[in-house]
Structures are given as structure tokens and as C-alpha cells.
């Protein structure tokens, strides 16, 4: 099978790991050449038109979080782009945040935190604030290390624990399975299907 070279553009390190894992578990033979991220969606939004243009040379997979419950994903890309979307630009939105995709592998995730399976809902896209929800689950974890790493300490202004990214990226790289997770998150399922069907268009 032909190798498809792919550029990633994401909001943060956790999204990067999730995107890499999606690509890795896909049937297609993807090769990630580079991952662009600079902390937050502002960078993606400011560069999206450049990515769209560059996509005629190398396909792009852009992954971002949904900003609000009322936002409609097709509108988002239309609002961001000032030109028609290049067919080589795959633009996907995690509803509401990439954390909902992480939790969507309910079995592996609840095992990781050592909490009961039913703590994570069947449809993780329905969680209004997935990161906050994830941290509230971590608070109940039986592992003191995970509690300390994921949950912000008492009285802190930070919204996540001091080793949040590292713990979750390790989980995603390790036990997290796209095929299990896509059953519980429609937005993840659609993103993965898109990668499975994708055929790059080469310029004439």
C-alpha cells in the first residue's frame, strides 16, 4: 500500500498523541512528517489558511476542540477558512474536547484510573466539560500517584495537576485503543472513518 505522508496540526500535546494514535491504528499506511502545535487553538486558527494552501502539497490533519455546545462543526471550518477547503485538508473537531476521546475507551480508561466502569458515560461526546470531568474522576482514583499528578493541588489556580499531560499521553500511547473508543464517541468515530477513507488528491 502506498505511503500517505501527513502533517498534523493540533492544539496541545495530548491532542498530538491522540492524533498520532489514530493515524497509527488506521488501515491506511500513514507517515506523519511533522506535527505543528503552539499551545491552544489561536495558533491553528491563525494558520489554517496557510495549512489549507500547503495541503495541495502535503495532506494535513487538523484536530481542534469544539468551543461551545451550540457550535456546529461545518460552520467552524467555514468561519475559519477564507477560501474553499482543499480536499487534502482533513479538519476534525473533538466534541467537546480531546479528553472525551481519551475517556471513550471506557474499559481501558477506568482500568487506568482504577475506578468502576460505569463512572464514564456511554456517550462521552455528551459531557459538557470533559477535562473537568476527567479530573473529577481522577480525584476518585485509587492510585495516589495519579491523584497527585492529574488533580490540581488544594488551593491551586491551575486547572490540572502538575503531570497531567505526561500521565495521559502515556496512557494514550499505551493502552488506549481507537477501536474501543470510537464506539462511545461519535466525533471520534467520524474522525477515524475520515482517515480510513481518505485518498490524497495529487495536483495535475
Amino acid at each position: 500500500m502506498n505511503t500517505i505522508y501527513l502533517m498534523l496540526a493540533v492544539e496541545d500535546v495530548l491532542s498530538e498523541m491522540v492524533a498520532r494514535k489514530l493515524v497509527e491504528q488506521s488501515q491506511k499506511n500513514y507517515w506523519v512528517t511533522q506535527c505543528l502545535r503552539k499551545g491552544g487553538f489561536g495558533y491553528l486558527k491563525s494558520k489554517i489558511n496557510a495549512f489549507n494552501k500547503a495541503a495541495s502539497g502535503v495532506p494535513f490533519f487538523v484536530l481542534t476542540d469544539q468551543d461551545s455546545i451550540n457550535e456546529c462543526p461545518p460552520d467552524k471550518i467555514a468561519n475559519w477558512l477564507n477560501q474553499p477547503r482543499n480536499p487534502n485538508l482533513i479538519f476534525r473537531i473533538a466534541v467537546m474536547e480531546v479528553e472525551s476521546w481519551v475517556m471513550a475507551d471506557r474499559k481501558a480508561f477506568t482500568k487506568f484510573l482504577s475506578i468502576p466502569l460505569n463512572r464514564v458515560p456511554q456517550d462521552t461526546d455528551s459531557i459538557p466539560d470533559p477535562k473537568e470531568f476527567l479530573i473529577s474522576l481522577a480525584r476518585k482514583s485509587r492510585s495516589s500517584r495519579l491523584r497527585a499528578d492529574l488533580v490540581p493541588p488544594h488551593g491551586a489556580t491551575s486547572k490540572q495537576g502538575p503531570d497531567y499531560n505526561n500521565q495521559l499521553t502515556r496512557f494514550v500511547m499505551g493502552d488506549w485503543d481507537v477501536h474501543a473508543a470510537r464506539n462511545n464517541s461519535k466525533s471520534l468515530n467520524r474522525a477515524f472513518m475520515r482517515l480510513e477513507e481518505f485518498k490524497p488528491v495529487t495536483p495535475e
Binding site: P153, G155, A156, T157, S158, Q160, N165
Partner: peptide, 9 residues
Amino acid sequence: LRDHGIDGR
């Protein structure tokens, strides 16, 4: 300092 795990304190 971009790490979100750093507490303001």
C-alpha cells in the same frame, strides 16, 4: 511557563 500544571502560587 506554558505548562497548565503550574500553579500561580
